[in-house]
Design a protein around this nucleic acid. Structure first.
Lengths: 188, 188
DNA sequence: TCGTATATGTACCGATCAGTTCATATTTTC
DNA sequence: GAAAATATGAACTGATCGGTACATATACGA
């Protein structure tokens, strides 16, 4: 059970940062809620920013795992697979702990384009874009790059709408839009 | 020139909050950059949150004015008007001071759905949705509510993409998608 | 010219910020 | 069972947080 304290910290800090924000969460608050001593925290991570980066790496990994695992398990033909993206989004939005996209929020709090947190957040989105594009290619899209970017815009917009609560069913509206966009490239 | 000090503060604080974030900007930083004394600030606004709310009200007003003024000046038929939304977005993204949507970022920093900042940010989006829906109705959409929500998803997604820099031309991709969605409701 | 409102500078408040120090436990490994 | 690594508690640093006190200055309207 040696390096697990570090992992435990990352897992628990993720929940707190996601729920309360990065700047709004002090190290003392982390100590209080995780039960892990501050000394230990700073032994594993030199600065708070380093901890945040580790949390984001962990989030990127677990989120994409969760997302594409769900997609794989559905075992759908390429075209339905593209649409299923928005069914999974809907599930995510329905979770009681849903609080928007951690990377959108991270880049909102760390706006300097040079900042590692900003860089890493953008990288997460680029990985999703690549995965979408691969799916669009498998489905036989005439312009897989464009279709992937458009579906990603719908996804990001839906996340923002769900987080801010100005649309009753953003995933549903996005799915219907995706159907139209896909049909435009693949025929109905 | 009596109540102008207050307005001057709101205008200048807007620039700083927009550029650096809300929590990351201290009152002392506002004093240093605006040249307005802290005493005066707290005479006009009881708390920092009150100042932030005033800034957001001002932003909502000026942004919607700017946006729909541009749309009106183009004097386009309803269908082209809907598309022009994304041309204006493109202009916005190209401004050197562009740093994403202030309301998305505000709701990312103030996540409590009860918090006035969160409430007011969502209200801004609802006003945009209403305006979009009206435009969709004038264009003769079969489901103006759905079309408005979908165009709004594209708009929010494009803003996030432009802010995070993971898409070379989010406004362009969104415009092409909007064309397809509009054609699906109005015929080509 | 006088009264009133508004703005300023400075010093201060207690709380909290990220991060450190250090001595003491608690585990793990051999 | 001893050495070595890891975790802990608590007290502390200097800086900054939002916000206040108070005395002075500047402007305005009558």
């Amino acid at each position: 059970m040696r390096p697990s304290k570090r992992d435990e910290l990352v897992r628990k800090a993720l929940v707190i940062f996601y729920r309360d924000g990065f700047h709004a969460t002090g190290m003392d608050a982390l100590v209080a809620e995780t039960g892990i001593s501050k000394t230990t925290m700073f032994k594993h991570f030199r600065t708070k920013d380093d901890l945040i980066l580790a949390v984001l790496r962990y989030r990127d990994e677990t989120f994409r795992n969760w997302f594409f695992r769900k997609l794989d398990d559905a075992a759908l033909p390429p075209r339905q697979r593209l649409l299923a993206v928005f069914d999974i989004l809907k599930e995510w939005f329905a979770e009681p702990s849903f609080k928007g996209c951690m990377f959108i929020k991270a880049s909102a709090e760390f706006q300097d384009p040079q900042h590692p947190v900003y860089v890493q957040s953008a990288e997460h989105k680029r990985l999703l874009k690549s995965a979408f594009q691969e799916m669009a290619e498998e489905a036989g899209a005439t312009d897989p790059d464009l279709l992937a970017r458009q579906l990603l815009l719908l996804k990001e917009g839906a996340i923002v709408a769900a987080h801010m609560g100005f649309d009753p069913d953003p995933a549903g509206a996005a799915r219907l839009a995706a159907e139209v966009l896909i049909a435009a490239q693949l025929g109905s």
